[in-house]
Amino acid sequence: MNPAIETFRTGGAPDTHVDACGRRHPQAGGDARIVSLVPSLTELICDLGLGAQLVGRTGFCIHPRETLRTVPKVGGTKDVKVDVLRALEPSHLIVNVDENRRETVEELAAFVPNVIVTHPCAPADNLGLYRLFGGVFGREREAEALCAALQSALDEAAALRAQLAGEAVLYLIWRQPWMTVSRETYISAMLDTVGWRTLPEGTGPRYPAFDWALAARAERVFLSSEPYHFNASHLSEVESLGGRPAALIDGEMVSWYGSRAVAGLRYLLGLRRELAGLAAA
């Protein structure tokens, strides 16, 4: 078995060529052929200036639209068309612990030489992710620029978090059944960075269904734009059910890691200030 998929584990490593599985990847040449099965990492690959080497992506990989318009699709994040992917002859495959099925990755690893496993669990984990891709694909300068931008946003978030009292929030991702996110998710970690603590507390399913009595412990309810597309028409219904102020929130900005984490934190900083009645920084 390819050591890249023997064990999925979290945690970073000081070596910028080591992925979340603990495998060290050699530096790729300019002829690397990359397939990404992770929408947010497809965006990161392009933002690092590697769009010309991207030879395959999922149907959910939609950003940046113009760059991806001519890149072949290989199915979805979980229903990968193996024969289509094989025909692209990739040298590198980008996967994620949470978004891709292990059995699919094992099947693909039989013919893809380099399987890069990722598992960012919090915004700061993107620093290691930038350096991993930058180190493997020779984009160290671009990776460090992203690191500087992210660190600046993290520092600003820490300052705002110290300024404002924390708030418990209920973050909706689905309707009928009503579902939210656990504190073990990247979404929850993003919100916590600006002082919004998601409910429920403790461990449990990553995306649990809930009873509306839970809203009594929240100070506000967020309706995400994905995976369920909540819109303004749902606000009054949610406020009636939960008895708490409700607001729409951009799900991509909260759930997409990679280079989107920079814009995502800036977005959350602006929303936190707006809802707290603070002037923009």
Rank of each mutant, 00 (worst) to 15 (best):
Thr10Met: 07
Asp47Met: 09
Arg86Leu: 05
His17Asn: 14
Asp155Glu: 11
Asp250Asn: 12
Thr58Leu: 00
Thr70Trp: 07
Val95Lys: 03
Ser36Ala: 04
Arg266Tyr: 12
Trp196Tyr: 14
Leu88Gln: 07
Thr180Ile: 09
Ala218Asn: 03
Val84Gln: 06
Leu172Asp: 03
Leu269Arg: 07
Ala145Glu: 14
Asp31Cys: 03
Ala280Thr: 10
Ser188His: 06
Val262Arg: 06
Cys147Met: 04
Pro205Gly: 03
Gly75Cys: 04
Arg9Glu: 15
Thr7Met: 13
Pro177Gln: 01
Pro39Gly: 01
Ser240Ile: 09
Arg217Pro: 10
His119Lys: 05
Glu219Gln: 15
Ser224Thr: 09
Ile94Val: 14
Glu156Phe: 06
Leu54Ser: 00
Cys21Thr: 09
Arg9His: 15
Val115Leu: 00
Pro64Val: 01
Gln151Trp: 08
Gly166Leu: 11
Gln27Arg: 13
Ala109Glu: 03
Ile34Lys: 05
Gly251Tyr: 02
Lys81Trp: 03
Ser259Arg: 03
Val221Trp: 06
Lys78Arg: 06
Ser36Gln: 04
Arg33His: 01
Ala165Gly: 14
Arg101Trp: 14
Ala165Thr: 13
Glu144Ala: 12
Gly277Trp: 05
Gly59Lys: 15
Ala246Thr: 10
Glu89Gly: 01
Glu6Ser: 11
Gly30Cys: 05
Leu93Val: 00
Leu223Ala: 09
Ile173Ala: 12
Thr70His: 11
Glu201Thr: 12
Thr193His: 08
Ser182Phe: 11
Asn100Arg: 01
Ala148Cys: 08
Pro208Ile: 03
Ala124Phe: 14
Pro177Asp: 01
Met190Asn: 10
Leu41Gly: 02
Ala109Val: 02
Val169Trp: 08
Phe133Pro: 01
Val169Leu: 11
Thr118Val: 05
Ala153Gln: 15
Asn114His: 14
Arg217Phe: 13
Pro177Asn: 01
Phe60Ala: 13
Ser91Leu: 08
Asp211Phe: 05
Leu129Trp: 11
Val55Thr: 00
Ala279Phe: 01
Val82Asp: 06
Phe210Ser: 04
Leu150Trp: 03
Ser152Ala: 15
Gly22Asp: 08
Gly258Lys: 02
Ser91Ile: 04
Gly56Asp: 03
Glu107Asn: 10
Glu6Lys: 07
Gly242Lys: 00
Glu274Ile: 05
Arg161Val: 07
Leu146Thr: 05
Gly75Ile: 00
Ala148Tyr: 08
Leu108Asp: 02
Pro227Trp: 09
Gly242Met: 04
Ser36Arg: 02
Thr10Glu: 15
Leu48Pro: 03
Glu167Ser: 10
Arg206Glu: 12
Gly258Asp: 09
Met253Gly: 03
Ser259Lys: 02
Glu226Asn: 06
Ser259Leu: 08
Val55Trp: 03
Gly277Phe: 14
Tyr130Trp: 12
Glu66Cys: 01
Val194Tyr: 04
Ala261Arg: 06
